[in-house]
Amino acid sequence: MRQDLVLLSMFAGLAVVVLPVVFVFFLALGPAGWLFTGVSIVVVGVVVAAKADDDADETPAKTNCPECGSRVQVNAPTCDYCGHAFDGPAPDDTPDPSAP
């Protein structure tokens, strides 16, 4: 038997059991519970987005290797993929703003 069909049937069975329970739960909460749930989801979303934005600043700058095109850190002495040695820092993708 194919595993993807087994997983699909398991999720469908789970949905048949869980969704009515969730539906009845939210009906029992009433408008105040709906508002609390909505505000909680928004707060969690804002916190996750802020955390993801903080993590994005910690990634090192990268550029492409001139030999193979692999992504390497700007200050890497050699390419991790092809072993190309850079004379100085790896070449930068961005043009020099002081160049004419």
Rank of each mutant, 00 (worst) to 15 (best):
N64T: 13
V39D: 10
L29G: 08
S9V: 03
A12V: 01
F26V: 00
D4N: 07
D96E: 12
T59E: 12
R71L: 15
P60C: 11
Y81N: 11
V42I: 14
S70N: 14
V46H: 07
G13R: 05
P20A: 06
A76Q: 02
L27M: 05
A28K: 01
K51H: 08
D80V: 13
L5F: 13
H84R: 03
C82G: 11
L5W: 10
G88T: 11
H84C: 03
E67D: 09
L35W: 05
V47A: 15
F86S: 05
A50W: 09
V24E: 06
F26M: 04
C79M: 08
D53F: 10
G33Q: 01
D54Y: 12
A99K: 06
V43S: 00
F25W: 12
A15W: 10
H84Y: 14
F23D: 12
V6W: 00
S9L: 13
K62I: 12
T78E: 15
E58C: 10
P100H: 05
G45N: 11
V74E: 13
V74M: 15
A61S: 12
F26G: 04
C65A: 06
A12Q: 02
M1Y: 05
E58K: 06
L29E: 02
G38Q: 05
A12T: 08
Q73E: 06
L5S: 09
R71S: 15
E67R: 13
F86G: 04
K51W: 07
M1W: 05
A99N: 12
G88K: 06
N75T: 14
A15D: 05
V43I: 11
G30N: 03
A52R: 15
V46T: 02
T94L: 14
A61I: 13
A32G: 06
L29H: 08
A99R: 12
A12N: 01
A49K: 09
T94G: 09
M10P: 01
A90Q: 00
C68W: 13
G83L: 02
A15K: 00
S98W: 12
H84D: 10
T78F: 15
N75I: 06
L8Y: 14
N64D: 11
V48Q: 13
M10V: 01
G33C: 02
Y81V: 05
Y81T: 07
V6F: 00
F11L: 14
P20M: 02
L7M: 07
F36A: 13
D4F: 10
V18W: 04
F86Y: 03
F23W: 10
L35P: 01
T94V: 09
L8I: 01
A85C: 08
D96G: 02
L29W: 07
V22Q: 15
T37I: 11
V39K: 04
Q3N: 06
D93Y: 04
T37C: 09
C65V: 03
L14P: 01
D80P: 11
S40G: 08
V48L: 14
D54P: 00
A56M: 13
D55F: 10
G69W: 15
Q3F: 10
V48W: 12
G30A: 06
F26Y: 08
T78V: 10
A90V: 04
P31F: 10
P95L: 01
D54S: 12
F36Y: 14
T59V: 15
V18R: 05
A61N: 14
V21D: 03
D4H: 09
T63I: 03
A56Y: 09
S70R: 15
F36T: 15
S9E: 03
R71G: 10
L27P: 07
D54T: 11
